[in-house]
Design a protein around this nucleic acid. Structure first.
Length: 278
DNA sequence: AGTCAAACCTGGGCGC
DNA sequence: TGCGCCCAGGTTTGAC
């Protein structure tokens, strides 16, 4: 479900409402989602009595720092949700984890497909989580300069779509934003990245920053499941130019948008505005 | 180094 | 209404 803009929006909705809140009780309803530590009782023992100090995002991961040297790390994968609700609210189906806080609110983890990942690791051992250990640069950070981007692409023979979806190349992009970025940059999803001209590389770098930034400003894309920590939908779906529009008309040239499988993911693009060189 | 299919799950939508 | 099939915002694994 959520890509960088959605996870960032969730982070922003949760942080002001979690900082300094104490976890009174942890209810584990589906232990298999807790990947570390293995024993859910240890998970509960460390969390109960802790206070949230800070919430961060890294790629598509949410990091909840505590007033103990431990970090709660959550990846929402496809259908995960984190919601702040009154304890009195009925517990919806597919709610797998509940944190009862000291102000009458719950932080609840809800996940229809049960793909979500939950970890509790020592603050200085975030590298135990392989997806974080190998995570590429944050595309909206100041450090993600054109030089940084160009270096990250140097020598790569992946297709453009594969590069964007590879979290070790650049953090946080998923299927929706990958298609939107490639359309904006005018790059065919199957173009090999080391074939791109310097101009096209610049376009791609700009498009990564621009589309992700626009997604954050619209508070994410709500197509099926995505909502922020208060259940509020985003609005970036209104600005999608290719994703979900296969067979419809390109907004730039009036040709028909094509659908293809690239890197095992459904991909929509305009063959005219995103030509392939070879 | 890259690509591909399968696996992990449930539910929605479609054709019949 | 029901059945079977395909699809879905992500990532890992193992085979080539």
């Amino acid at each position: 479900m959520p890509e960088l803009p959605e996870v960032e929006t969730i982070k922003r909705s949760l942080e002001p409402n979690l900082v300094n809140k104490k976890i009174m009780k942890v209810q584990v309803k589906m232990a298999k989602l807790i990947k570390k530590p293995q024993d859910p009782e240890i998970f509960k023992d460390i969390l109960e009595g802790s206070r949230f100090k800070k919430v961060k995002r890294r790629g598509k991961y949410l990091l909840f720092y505590l007033d103990r040297p431990w970090v709660l790390v959550i990846h929402l994968r496809m259908t995960g949700r984190l919601l702040l609700l009154n304890t009195s609210e009925p517990i919806e189906k597919h709610t797998h984890l509940i944190f009862n806080l000291d102000d009458g609110l719950d932080l609840r983890f809800h996940d229809v497909r049960q793909f979500g990942l939950i970890y509790l690791v020592p603050e200085n051992k975030l590298d135990l989580i392989s997806g974080i250990r190998t995570m590429g640069p944050e595309p909206l950070s100041e450090e993600y300069t054109f030089n940084c981007f160009r270096d990250s692409i140097k020598g790569k023979k992946q297709r453009a779509k594969a590069f964007l979806l590879d979290q070790s190349c650049v953090a946080g992009i998923g299927n929706i934003y990958a298609d939107e970025i490639l359309f904006q940059a005018g790059i065919h999803p199957e173009e090999t990245v080391n074939n791109l001209s310097p101009e096209k590389l610049e376009d791609l770098w700009q498009a990564i920053k621009d589309r992700l930034k626009a997604g954050v400003e619209s508070r994410g894309t709500s197509i099926k499941d995505y909502v922020d920590g208060f259940g509020t939908k985003g609005s970036f779906q209104e600005q999608l130019k290719v994703y979900g529009r296969a067979g419809e008309t390109c907004i730039q040239c009036e040709n028909k948008l094509m659908k293809a499988k690239v890197v095992g993911r459904s991909t929509v693009f305009c063959p005219h505005c995103q030509p392939k060189k070879n």
